[in-house]
């Protein structure tokens, strides 16, 4: 790392493709040794951001630095300090896994002996030793993704970019990737990952940026984002669909907040400020309306609720 300061920095990044604005002024500062999740739906600009930060794409305006190096003016220095795992496993399918890692090691200008030794270390670390000499075309999706990750780690880059690293993976392969990311951060690396999965951001990230139509619409720790929704929520599960509407009206009257309705689960969720008092008030209101609650719980909001709130502020209002 060239100097102290954020491992990843961006100021005012703009990018458009024809008439489509992909990034509309993105600022970013990721402290060294932390995981930043960039959360957004398809087309929010996540991949464009990663491609600019990894020197693959030139921004129309704005600047970015990785490990202190400007991604345009010092692109080679930046490249020597970053690893990239793209959306598709970018490995040579004809070659074996070991051959792939040696190839990329040589292109990182490691000596032949060092490249071979590093390939073996990484094959062991990602549990790919047994298949190492089989053509990658015969590997499973999860194995390819691990090889892709290994290829990005050849020179132990201080900054790692993962563009939707677990999209299309089964739960087991997903949790393997998560473990690998956590191990990396333990060694002091800085990670920026993009994801559509809120659970992934919640589990891995120190900070989250919500990207929507090329803008950062929210930033903070997962806990901070959750508290932007007004603290805790009270869930009430009812017995009958017909009870949802009168119960929602009763809860609105009692708490002053409109609950969201999950018709399939027969559940109402209402944001509250004082957990205990609100719980009692909600139960009294339901009871006074002559209804019976099947279950009731006080909980922190999920990141899903934060995300929906930020990207689509419509809440279902009971009729």
């Amino acid at each position: 790392m060239r100097r102290d300061g954020p491992a990843i920095e961006a100021e005012g990044l703009h990018k458009r493709y024809g008439d489509v604005v992909a990034l509309d002024g993105v600022d970013l500062a990721v402290p060294a040794g932390t995981v930043c999740a960039v959360l957004g739906v398809n087309g929010a600009g996540k991949s464009t951001l990663v491609r600019i930060l990894t020197t693959l794409l030139r921004a129309d305006a704005g600047t970015a630095r990785v490990a202190g190096y400007d991604v345009r003016r010092q692109a080679d220095r930046a490249r020597a300090h970053l690893g990239l795992v793209g959306q598709h496993a970018a490995v040579d399918e004809i070659l074996g896994g070991r051959q792939n890692l040696v190839l990329f090691g040589r292109l990182h200008h490691l000596s032949p002996a060092r490249a071979a030794a590093r390939a073996d270390e990484l094959l062991d670390r990602f549990d790919l030793r047994a298949a190492a000499d089989r053509p990658v075309a015969t590997w499973s999706g999860g194995m390819r993704r691990r090889l892709d990750l290994a290829a990005a780690l050849i020179v132990d880059p201080p900054v790692l970019f993962l563009d939707e690293p677990t999209t299309g993976l089964d739960p087991r392969a997903r949790s393997d990737v998560w473990d690998a990311v956590r191990d990396l951060v333990d060694t002091g690396a800085t990670v920026l990952l993009t994801t559509q999965y809120l659970e992934e951001a919640d589990r891995l990230a120190d900070t989250v940026r919500v990207l929507d139509h090329g803008r950062v619409t929210a930033a903070g720790t997962p806990e901070e984002l959750k508290s932007t929704l007004g603290g805790d929520r009270v869930d009430v599960v009812l017995h009958h669909p017909d009870d949802l509407t009168p119960a929602a009206a009763a809860i609105t009257a009692a708490t002053g907040a409109v609950p969201t309705v999950d018709r399939a689960a027969l559940r109402l969720s209402v944001p509250v400020t004082d957990r205990v008092a609100a719980l009692a008030a909600v139960l009294r209101a339901v009871d006074a309306a002559g209804l019976r609650a099947g279950d009731v719980a006080v909980r922190r909001p999920t990141l899903d609720e934060v995300f929906l709130h930020l990207t689509d502020s419509r809440t279902e209002v009971p009729a």
Partner: peptide, 13 residues
């Protein structure tokens, strides 16, 4: 198409 070219472009080669 497979992203190998992009990987090359992200390397200090």
């Amino acid at each position: 198409a497979r992203g190998v070219t992009d990987r090359f472009r992200s390397l200090p080669m």
